[in-house]
Amino acid sequence: MLYLLRRLAGFALTLLIAALVIFVLLDLLPGDPARFILGINASADALAALRLQMGLDIPAPARFGNWVWSMLQGDFGVSHTQRAPVAKLIAERMAVTLPLSVFAMAISMAVGLPLGILAARHRGKPLDTALMVMAQGGVAVPNFWFGMLLTLLFAVTLRWLPPGGFTPWYEDGWLALRGLVLPSLALALPQAAILARVMRTALVDVAGQDFIRTARAKGMTYGEAIWRHGVRNALLPVLTILGLQFAYLIAGTIIVENVFYLPGLGRLIFTAISERDLVLVRSATMVLVLAVSATMLVVDLTYALVDPRLRERRA
């Protein structure tokens, strides 16, 4: 219980410090948001009018306070460049980024975990070697490059899937889904390769340990022993990697979103920074930080549940 409280306090503190860092960094950015919107022929009075509208004349500490306070109340502010509520803008993008991350995770687990088990099962044999060579290649291919190759094959040549773009879910769920197939694959390949390697290593590690030997002495075959005891015990390192990967996917899809012109959260922030849409960047980055921290929190708590030893050691 104490552990939980401490961990939660840490979570809150991380968020507050993150908010401060983001705010300060953004305030330091060179470039005038008003001038960006109005361009090179803007007259001085139009610029002044826009700055006033954007609230840029309020001192920084007050703006920070206002921002944190309104975010706590669930108000994310209004984007001045896009002139729309930030919460709405983020929610729209989450409808792409979240499923994309989840699909990529699902594919990488569906491919990576069984292959890892298979390799461990055949440790040292040609199959193991072949799988691990494939995994090495998978880890090493830059995902945006892989995405390009996928598009050329499946969209341009075979025309099975769209080369990019996204149909909103409410319009046509099936089309939306199709639009996410190639990007999920591009994202999943390196993740699957990593998972396969981690799974294999973890299994090989536990295979040498006493309880597996005991299980085998009790008459289980190697496969049964690995399946019943090995996989469960190997889950811990795999869980860590999964947490890391999900965190990475949530925030790290910008590049793949660009290749497939998907309207994801990463691209929203990317564009907003170049447009000096400070309100939007701030709040959207906070949402990402929140998502990543929450994932880490869940991983840590699961850890503590799975392995009470860790809980004692940490507390």
């Binding site: 598009t151 969209a155 341009v156 025309r159 080369p163 990019g164 773009g165 660009n258 290749v259």
Partner: peptide
């Protein structure tokens, strides 16, 4: 109006008839 900032992606979208 479909927004595609990347030239390679635009090429693909044109070729694929998107």
């Amino acid at each position: 109006y479909v927004f595609i900032s990347d030239t390679a992606t635009m090429t693909n979208a044109l070729l694929a008839g998107d």
